[in-house]
Amino acid sequence: MSELRYEAPESVSAAVALLAGAKGMARVLAGGTDVIVQMETELIEPELIVDIKKIPEVRGISAENGGFRVGAAATGMQICDHKEFARTWPGVIEGVKLIGSIQVKGRASMGGNLCNASPGADSVPPMFTAGAIARVVGPKGVREVPVEQIPTAPGKTSLAKDEIVTSFFFPARPKRSGDAYQRFTPRTEMDIAVTGVAINLSLDDKGVCTAARVAIGAVAPTALLVKDAGAALVGTKVDDAAIEKMVAAARAACKPIDDKRGTKEFRIEVTGVLAKRVAKAALERALANK
């Protein structure tokens, strides 16, 4: 067991340099609601902790190009309390709201939720459907990466050892758009998703769906953007027949495991149930959002 080092740099470049120089395991500390638990339960024994919360740009939420830029370490409560963001992305907020208790959301961030790479992370499917873009900074500079390209397997990401996600960009969205996220857990709160579904869709003046993205969580090694499921809604009025097709595509994309949180069979079945409910919720929001 090596001595643990804690650093709290004040710039992204300093953070990146620390990570690049780490000899053993290094971990970025944002809200810490995963990292500290993993340390406490001795799942990980890092040599270096880089606390990024002293870096201003990872913490704020601001308007940008008609959309929003959200700091990777902005806390769940901060995001939920941002009225403009919450009004624009109710589905993302539904995901963020489900990241643990109020206490946990006082610390937990979307950056952490994404980079911890748990397949059941609640804010991740709605980020996928929102088309959020992660800003990734490393020694070679800045990359703008669609969020769905970040997690690669449970606990694994496409980030290099010396790269960090500093913020997310949520694009401007057309009128008559709506998103929603629901998950299934055996308890009403304080639980990890057994399955989760996010849908983001836009309608034209006649109520015909012009774009739709469907993402599922906790039913595969990573959250998945299911292109076929989105495509099933495009060009329709999101009627029952279209929803049925979308549900079938979502179920077909599930590659779940049996574990302590649920069985394969249950996860596939309930993913479809949620997909139907979430589609209706997203549609209702899109129709209301004139």
């Binding site: 804690y6 500390l29 810490g32 919360k53 610390r107």
Partner: peptide, 18 residues
């Protein structure tokens, strides 16, 4: 549960050094 800089959180989910 404690309140840190006005925010409710779990004291076990924050390092002392933070």
């Amino acid at each position: 549960s404690v309140i840190v800089d006005g925010t409710l959180q779990c004291a076990c989910l924050m390092l002392g050094v933070e």
